[in-house]
């Protein structure tokens, strides 16, 4: 069995946009999909709790879960090229989601679809409704995927690398849209990304995942200023910055294979502060004051360089 995500534990506060950060393969997407209980087979839950609004989602029946999907928690997936069904028009796909949330007649549903398309700032929404996904640009498709996630007016929106496959200029537009939507609709955002630049711009709190474990939890400002986990520090060094002349340092080694994860601290094979204890014993996620948590045996002894964001 592959334990993609193991012992991931963090809290999302209402109205505080949260960044879920890590390299690809670190379990970010699985964590998000778990919250919606739509992990593709053969994935399943070995245990754990996902508490949303005081209720454990993992104990819900499938029929109850449907009241959460889209209505309480929205989800925007990674790749705009594949997030929409290629065989149905945009209008059909949006209005069926609208109708899944509220029993409304067809005409009312298409009015609602128009509203949604306007909300995500799509020009000529009537024409776009009749279009098939392949007739639209990547940015446009990602807006439509966002519109679909908004159809049930969720309290929490999980955006899974929403800009990874987009051009840089379109990326900025989509991120702006997400920012505005949070304000307009009072949603809480969980942003999954591997890009620390986006984290700095969009979030107030950061959870850093490494190989299916939480490495560090802190406010965004503290994460950038004084990282406590060597992996976080390494991530910050791998971010290109326009304003500073400093060489980028790639992170050596590879993401460990989750079938046979490294012993002890899963980061030890790539960590320059590695000692015997790191190989022997898995570190606990310690609360270190000020709402911060870190999972490292040596966080007290080492000093890590941050960046002022």
């Amino acid at each position: 069995m592959v334990r993609a995500v193991d012992g991931v534990n963090f809290t999302v506060e209402k109205g505080v946009p949260l960044g879920l950060v890590g390299e690809s393969g670190s379990g970010k997407t699985v964590t998000a999909l778990s919250a919606l209980r739509v992990v593709p087979r053969p994935g399943k839950f070995a245990g754990g709790k996902i508490i949303f609004d005081g209720e454990d989602l993992l104990t819900k029946k499938e029929s109850e879960m449907r009241k959460y999907r889209g209505r309480r928690i929205g989800y925007v997936s990674q790749d705009p090229n594949s997030s929409l069904d290629p065989l149905f028009t945009v209008g059909t796909q949006l209005s069926e989601v609208v109708q899944a949330h509220e029993k409304v007649p067809k005409e009312r549903a298409s009015e609602r679809v128009l509203e949604l398309l306007q909300r995500v700032r799509i020009s000529e929404p009537e024409a776009r409704m009749r279009a098939y996904p392949h007739e639209l640009s990547g940015g446009m498709r990602q807006r439509i995927a966002i519109a679909r996630a908004l159809a049930g007016e969720p309290d929490l929106l999980i955006a899974d690398e929403p800009t990874t496959n987009l051009d840089v200029t379109i990326q900025a537009q989509v991120l702006d849209l997400l920012k505005d939507l949070q304000r307009e609709l009072g949603m809480t955002l969980i942003l999954i990304t591997h890009d620390m630049g986006i984290v700095a711009e969009m979030t107030q709190k950061v959870v850093v995942l490494y190989a299916g474990r939480v490495a560090e939890v802190a406010s965004t400002r503290e994460t950038f200023a004084t990282p406590k986990h060597p992996y976080t520090s390494a991530l910050l060094k791998a971010v290109p910055r326009v304003d500073r002349k400093k060489e980028l340092v790639p992170i050596g080694g590879n993401i460990p294979n989750l079938i046979t994860p490294p012993s002890g601290c899963r980061f030890h094979p790539r960590c320059r502060f590695m000692q015997e204890i790191c190989v022997a014993k898995e570190p606990a996620l310690d609360a270190i004051g000020g709402g911060r948590q870190v999972s490292c045996h040596r966080w007290k002894e080492i000093t890590l360089e941050g960046t002022s964001s």
Binding site: P230, S233, A234, K237, K246, E247, V249, I251, G252, G253, N254, I255, P256, N257, T260, P262, P269, R270, C271, R272, M274, E305
Partner: peptide, 16 residues
């Protein structure tokens, strides 16, 4: 100035 942050001590995947 370059600071060496992380040394790849072991190969992470064992399939090499």
């Amino acid at each position: 100035m370059q600071e060496e942050v992380l040394l790849p001590k072991h190969e992470a995947g064992s399939q090499r």
